[in-house]
Design a protein around this nucleic acid. Structure first.
Length: 579
RNA sequence: GCGCCUGUAGCUCAGCUGGAUAGAGCAAUUGCCUUCUAAGCAAUGGGCCAGGAGUUCGAAUCUCUUCAGGCGCGCCA
């Protein structure tokens, strides 16, 4: 059980015993650490209900708790706060139990929910750019958070591989090589490479936007492709294979792993049946040449646009495949909850999608569909991020920049006994760690300013700071042997504060999971790193001559390190062997 | 036009189920490497929480409003 929950339970009992409602009687960390460790504010609102002075109520509660051996003191403070200090013995006993448990006494969820986190956002034939970074990092972290809580979670990259962009790319390829040079698998393997794809889409897409005829041809090819056979389909298969291989490489570099590499195209065999069923049930009808479902209601202002199943040219689009994907997931995995980690700007689309599911009852059961939107990544000027040359920055280049910077730093600080290979490995861990930490420390839904120079500084509240702290602790632990598992009462304020903070981890994890907001956890990790830096600065461990003190300190660091490692793993940050 | 989001230190951001003195990092100034790694530690300065009104014992947090910025409003994703 969570430490603060234990305290809350005691406080609640006291409220009941004193004859008051315990609804708001929860314990929070003190906002005035100079006065107390924890506080409870419930007496203030109770004053009105019971027509008593808040201080009188607080005094009664304090009195009830005066004999509880968990508390050093519970004091009523004007205008009616309860200021709480716990006994060192009580706190330390909890810390020892935490250290003895390989799950740190985490309360796993009782009813695991079958969940899919949809977070890739990657498009076939387009290289990953900084815009994909947020989805990947945030989504991966949400997946791991929920998994840590005990849910059954799958991550799905959900590739954009069946829409208009495919028509655009295919046309671009045909024009480059000639359709006669794309007939055999051998030809296609020779011509369709990742570097070709990277150039083709931006060029052709720009052209299609300018030229109506080109666009019409792209749309026609898309429509033909969606029949699932023929030369366009053959080309598409190769494009998909080449793309996925490249994407896997890039995601792996970020430490992002998907359980499912599904895409829009995977719905191609069920889309027809779904559309027919929706027509039959009278939900879908024709409008302006397109097949749509009306989903708006009177409360919507402005009215919600209709949900489009088929464009007027007969082709389907992402809304169609997204809907079909929901059905497929229910059927294949019996999914109960789906979380979409997607750019905020797609909010309306998902509102439409969820409304469609609710209105048509197409899933056949209650489904928890959530849009977990994230903000746009902007440059220093607050406008969408561009490279110096004005182009979109590729994710690969960004990671390279950070790794190079980390490598430079290593050359200055680390000894010559470290091999170049190891230096590169560390530079990679530090670079990616910096990137993830920086991204995750901002609130998910807010836009944020992307600044390579700031990311590369590696000082202060950054990933490398946290990694460095962990590395230092590991280095101390390597010099110390723990004789017994015992952790003694705190030797002073710094250690006591650390103990209290250690007990807070569960609140951070649960909060982050509940809000789908990894920044809550990242912030906790940072606080823990700060507390640990203070701790090992103030208390020497390896050089301590008092055996008992040394042992207790070692175990304190051991618990801290293990916890840090576990939490860093949730946010996808690795701890290097040395720094 | 309608809707959604944002506005907190010079800069980048936390805090937003209302609680005591609004927190970090960067930047600035100052100490600390003969004892476990200075990517560190300790300290100082810096705020009418965009403006106004309201609700409340109590507001950065809730409500209304003004201003500023971003985004979205049917066949792109």
């Amino acid at each position: 059980m969570n430490f603060r929950d234990i305290l809350t339970e005691k406080i609640k009992n006291a409220f009941v015993e004193a004859g008051y409602d315990d609804k708001n009687a929860y314990v929070s960390l003190s906002g005035r650490p100079d006065l107390c460790q924890y506080q409870c504010n419930a007496c203030l609102p109770l004053a009105k209900i019971y027509k008593q002075k808040p201080m009188d109520i607080a005094a009664k509660i304090a009195d009830v708790l005066s004999n509880d051996d968990a508390f050093e003191s519970v004091v009523a403070c004007p205008p009616g706060f309860l200021n709480i200090i716990v006994k060192d013995e009580f706190l330390t006993s909890f810390i020892n139990k935490m250290a003895a448990d390989d799950q740190f006494l985490f309360d796993k969820i009782q009813n695991p929910v079958k969940t899919i986190v949809d977070y890739g956002g990657a498009n076939v034939a387009k290289s990953l750019h900084v815009g994909h970074l947020r989805s990947a990092i945030i989504g991966e972290s949400i997946k791991r958070l929920l998994r840590f809580e005990g849910h059954e979670v799958l991550g799905d990259v959900h590739l954009g591989d069946w829409g208009l962009q495919m028509g655009i790319v295919i046309l671009g390829i045909i024009e480059q090589f000639g359709i006669e040079n794309l007939q055999t698998d051998e030809d296609r393997t020779k011509n369709i490479t990742i570097s070709v794809l990277e150039k083709t889409y931006p060029q052709k897409s720009a052209e299609a936007k300018q030229n109506e005829d080109v666009m019409a041809e792209c749309k026609r090819i898309t429509f033909e492709l969606q029949k699932g056979e023929g030369i366009y389909f053959d080309i598409w298969q190769k494009v998909l294979a080449v793309s996925v291989e490249d994407l896997k490489k890039n995601y792996a570099r970020l430490g992002v792993e998907f359980d499912l590499w599904k895409g829009e195209s995977d719905t191609r065999n069920v889309v027809r049946g779904m559309i027919d069923a929706l027509k039959e049930k009278g939900f879908a009808h024709e409008d302006d040449g397109a097949l749509v479902i009306d989903i708006t209601n009177e409360q919507d202002n402005p009215p919600l646009p209709p949900f489009i199943l088929e464009k007027s040219d007969g082709a389907i689009l992402y809304s169609t495949t997204d809907l079909a994907t929901i059905l497929q997931r229910c059927e294949e995995f019996d999914t109960q909850r789906m979380i979409y980690v997607v750019d905020n700007r797609q909010g309306t689309h998902f509102k439409q999608l969820f409304r469609t599911v609710a209105k048509t009852g197409i899933a056949g059961k209650e489904l928890d569909l959530e849009f977990s939107g994230f903000g746009t990544m902007n440059g220093k000027d607050g406008k969408p991020y561009k490279t110096r040359e004005g182009g979109v920055m590729r994710l690969e280049d960004l990671i390279n920049a950070l790794e190079t910077e980390a490598y430079k730093k290593l050359e200055d600080t680390i000894g010559n006994d470290v091999s170049d290979e190891e230096k590169k490995e560390i530079a990679h861990q530090v670079g990616v760690g910096a990137l993830k930490f920086a991204d995750l420390s901002n609130h998910r839904s807010k836009d944020y300013n992307f600044d390579v120079e700031r990311f590369c500084s590696f000082e202060g509240k950054t990933g490398p700071y946290v990694q460095y702290t962990a590395v230092r602790i590991a280095s101390i632990l390597a010099k110390c042997e723990s004789l017994s598992a015992k952790i003694d009462l705190p030797e002073g304020d710094v250690q006591r504060d650390l103990f209290i903070l250690l007990t807070e981890y569960q609140t951070a994890v649960k909060g982050a999971a509940f809000e789908l907001a990894p920044n809550i956890l990242v912030d906790y990790i940072y606080q823990l790193a700060v507390a640990l830096n203070k701790y090992y600065h103030e208390y020497k461990v390896a050089t301590e001559t008092d055996i008992d003190k040394k042992n207790s300190r070692t175990n304190t660091l051991k618990l801290s390190f293990e916890l840090m490692k576990t939490l860093l793993d949730i946010v996808g940050i690795e701890i290097p062997k040395r720094m």
